[in-house]
């Protein structure tokens, strides 16, 4: 993941600036490039889109996806919604969090793993479900917690 730099940001901006309602696609690409929405990105984007800094900050802070600091090298999103609850996802989530010594949304001290809550991945007939680094995993069992631990090394 690159560190914040204006030349790369300008390149991303160039792709979006003429679009209708450019802010969300722009923020997605900024986060994809820098791993989060770096502080200096806010005034930079505001200036380019003729918005106030408050407006851009308001959007960044409204949406759960946008981060103000980088996540761990691996991101595990565990579904906490009803369909997964019905197959004991909360118990499993607790095992995972305890194993890595984490609370929801936190990152391990070595920066290896962030565990986040998500509310539905559309894998509701195959729960408990999760997403590891953007890849879906389902029918989780205590044994799959070991697999996940192996995968993130």
């Amino acid at each position: 993941m690159a560190a914040w730099n204006e030349s790369q940001a300008r390149e991303i901006l160039r792709r979006h600036v003429r679009r209708e309602g450019a802010l969300l696609p722009l923020l997605h690409d900024v986060q994809a490039a820098f791993g989060h929405i770096p502080g200096p990105a806010v005034p930079f984007i505001a200036e380019a889109l003729n918005l106030t800094r408050a407006e851009v900050h308001g959007v960044v802070s409204f949406y759960h996806d946008f981060r103000d600091k980088p996540a761990g090298r691996h991101v595990l999103k565990l579904c906490r919604a009803e369909a997964c609850q019905s197959v004991n996802s909360e118990e499993l989530a607790r095992q995972i969090l305890d194993r890595f010594g984490l609370e929801w949304g936190a990152t391990t001290p070595d920066g290896r793993l962030t565990v986040e809550a998500t509310y539905c991945l559309g894998l509701c007939a195959s729960g408990p479900a999760a997403m590891l680094d953007g890849e879906p995993v389902a029918r989780l069992t205590p044994a799959s917690v070991d697999d996940i631990a192996r995968e993130i090394g």
């Binding site: 309602g21 969300l24 997605h28 959007v59 996806d65």
Partner: peptide, 23 residues
Amino acid sequence: RVGAGAYVCGEETSLLESLEGRR
């Protein structure tokens, strides 16, 4: 277009706001 993790954007007017680049 891709959402950003807000359930409420499934509500139609909220979705339109989001498409326009707002909260």
